[in-house]
Design a protein around this nucleic acid. Structure first.
Length: 602
RNA sequence: GGAGGCGUAGUUCAGUUGGUCUAGAACGCCGGCCUGUCACGCCGGAAGUCGAGGGUUCGAGCCCCUUCGUCUCCGCCA
């Protein structure tokens, strides 16, 4: 048996320049087409596909051998490269002008019939998508498909470009522990029981936050790591329980330095897959993002930004507005351009104003169609004066054919978030989001704290430096008004990274913990090692982490972040391939001093 | 944790008011024929615990209950 593949060439490298040469190819049988006396094979490897011809008149033995080939067999083929005759050229194939007349075929591996077709002709041309759980169960076959190879290889290229950029800027790649200490803030930890320390647990890191700050204290000045992070929370289409971050920290820097570095990284990442991005992304304050887009991750690929109309309706004859204004509420809205003739009164009244707005978290929606000649059409137009309608129209910059959509509520936050969800809903529904566009922005001036059921909490994390002075005796509402030296980078409405300038002064750090109502005992138990380290000479420092799964899915235009992860978990954080997580042997539990509680009520 | 959708052949799906359903189609698979295909074509064939369990009924793929799996949205995600 001939198994000499050391001189093999790749399908994608064979061109018309190889005509009349004898070559050796190795790969998977993509398809075969048997014409009786003539059989075609599409041979696929990582680089592409090549048509192999087995002609009974030329080589009867090869033809007979080829009849036994089946999809996904692994074969070694030698043959001679030929030009195809003019009428047999396949313009859909990169190698469509040439083909290889086989002289030997060696089957290196047979294959069972796959549960779904690996060949490209399956999914793309037949418009059939296989259930994702089946794809994940047979991920090794799914990854053989050319779109998936494109995603995984593109991700590799992207990460290499990021590493090259950081290496060139003297950043040092340092690994940090996966088995580490559970920190109570933030997401739920994945826990790992310790065998050697009874009743004690490691936690998998939600991010290497404290370690990268410790590395700054150690004097490495510039650190990076492509690192897996773990959060035990419910999944979303763009969320995985384990995900990859480009984690960065540097000393003696400020926000502008971080933004410049990040931008050069993003430029390199997009460029690695052939996309040019603008020279810089604009900054938007958190307040602006909420007031104009209703989200802290504004999708800036399209307009529909909000304007406050409260003043225009003070006073008015519309009871709902009057009540809301009198209790200190606001009325805001935006103009939906040129859809007045495409959305019926019925759709506005029953679908948008009832169903959709409720799904967005709102109580109601006021719609006013703008007609030519200063005419307005609405179920509530009669409550407003012409002056009010004209002023609203001008404030929203609405044109004839537009629909003005207004939301009123006693809470500004509610109005903003409801409008924000409505904005995204309408943009998706009416295809208002341009394709192939990458629009990014920095969101800055975040609040340092936020209010939760359990009281005040850090919005970013408790190591974030306040942008202004904090005093111990400040009230919660005063503290909520304090801004943080934190920043997020948002692309196409997805938060793909964020970071902050950190606290390097132990006193300030202690003050933050105090504001968060952490007891000294709590602080010592949870962060004692870190507080201790802060006191030994900490340089001013800050950093950022980029979500590489999201970034790759944006750059590669993948339908889901799961498509740019080789072996992702499904929606319920289960791996259909390995069947993880799974139960373990009793003796393993015994070693770990773990007992199951069967009764869920216990 | 809450709400909703889906579960029928290897895959993607159809299956009407509960009664020719002895459950179909397409692709795939198996066999046969075919010398220029590339979604090859033609002929034939195999392939199903209708997710599971229970109930209603003379009769259940279809209705009801339970349960499992999965997807979507919300909560959650410093």
């Amino acid at each position: 048996m001939i198994t000499s593949w050391h001189n093999r060439q790749s399908c994608g490298d064979i061109t018309e320049a190889h005509v009349n040469q004898s070559i050796t190819l190795a790969g998977w049988v993509d398809t075969t087409r048997d014409h009786g006396q003539l059989l075609f094979i599409h041979l696929r490897d990582r680089s592409g596909t090549m048509q192999i011809v087995c002609d009974r008149n030329q080589n009867e033995g090869i033809y007979n051998q080829s009849k036994a080939l089946r999809s996904e067999f692994v074969v070694l083929i030698t043959g001679t490269v030929h030009m195809r005759s003019e009428h047999t050229i396949n313009s859909d194939m990169l190698s469509g002008t040439i083909e290889v007349a086989a002289t030997t075929i060696t089957v290196l591996s047979k294959a069972k019939t796959p549960p779904f077709m690996v060949s490209e002709k399956s999914s793309e041309k037949m418009d059939v998508t296989v259930d994702e759980d089946t794809r994940l169960q047979y991920r090794f076959l799914d990854l053989r498909r050319s779109p998936m190879q494109h995603y995984i290889i593109g991700r590799s290229r992207m990460i290499r470009s990021l590493r090259n950029t950081l290496d060139a800027a003297q950043f040092i790649d340092i690994e940090t522990p996966f088995l580490t200490k559970s920190t109570p803030e933030g997401a739920r930890d994945y826990l790992v029981p310790s065998r050697t320390h009874k009743k004690a647990f490691f936690a998998l890191p939600q991010s290497p936050q404290l370690f990268k700050q410790l590395l700054m204290m150690s004097g490495f000045e510039r650190y990076y790591q492509v690192v897996r992070c773990f959060r035990d929370e419910d999944l979303r289409p763009n969320r995985q329980p384990e995900f990859t971050q480009l984690d960065i920290e540097a000393s003696f820097i400020n926000e502008a330095d971080i933004r410049n570095l990040t931008h050069s990284l993003l430029a390199a990442a997009f460029d690695s897959n052939g996309i040019a991005i603008p020279n810089a992304f604009p900054c938007m304050t958190f307040d602006d993002a909420m007031n104009r887009y209703g989200s802290d991750a504004p999708d800036t690929r399209f307009g529909l930004t909000f304007t406050d109309l409260t003043a225009h309706f003070t006073p008015c004859n519309y009871g709902i507005f009057t009540t809301i204004i009198e209790s200190g509420g606001v009325i805001k809205g935006f103009a939906l351009p040129q859809l007045a003739d495409h959305i019926s009164k019925n759709a506005l009244q029953n679908d948008l104003a009832k169903t959709v707005i409720q799904a967005c978290g709102g109580k109601g929606l006021t719609w006013i169609k703008v007609r030519p000649d200063n005419q307005f059409e609405s179920n509530v137009a009669q409550f407003f004066t012409t002056e009010q309608l004209l002023a609203s129209r001008d404030a929203l910059n609405a044109k004839p054919g537009d629909i003005m959509l207004l939301v009123a509520d006693t809470s500004l936050d509610t109005v903003n978030t409801v409008l924000g969800k409505l904005r995204l809903h309408l943009a998706n529904r009416f295809n208002l989001i341009p394709k192939g566009v990458f629009s990014g922005c920095w969101v800055i001036d975040f609040p340092l704290f936020e209010e939760t059921d359990a009281g005040l909490a850090s919005r970013h994390h408790p190591f974030t430096q306040p942008a202004e002075a904090i005093h111990e005796d400040m009230s919660p509402s005063q503290l909520l008004a304090i801004k943080a030296r934190a920043y997020d980078i948002v692309i196409n409405g997805q938060e793909i990274g964020g970071g902050s300038i950190r606290i390097h002064d132990p006193q300030q750090q202690a003050l933050i913990f105090k504001c968060l109502r952490l007891s000294d005992a709590d602080i010592d138990q949870k962060f004692g090692f870190f507080i201790n380290a802060l006191a030994y000479g900490t340089p001013p420092h800050g950093g950022l982490a980029l979500g590489l799964d999201r970034l790759a899915s944006i750059i590669l235009d993948a339908p889901s972040i799961r498509d740019v992860i080789a072996f992702p978990k499904n929606r319920v954080a289960f791996c259909p391939l390995t069947k993880a997580p799974s139960t373990v042997d009793q003796h393993q539990l015994n070693e770990l001093h773990i007992t199951h509680i069967d009764d869920p009520l216990l």
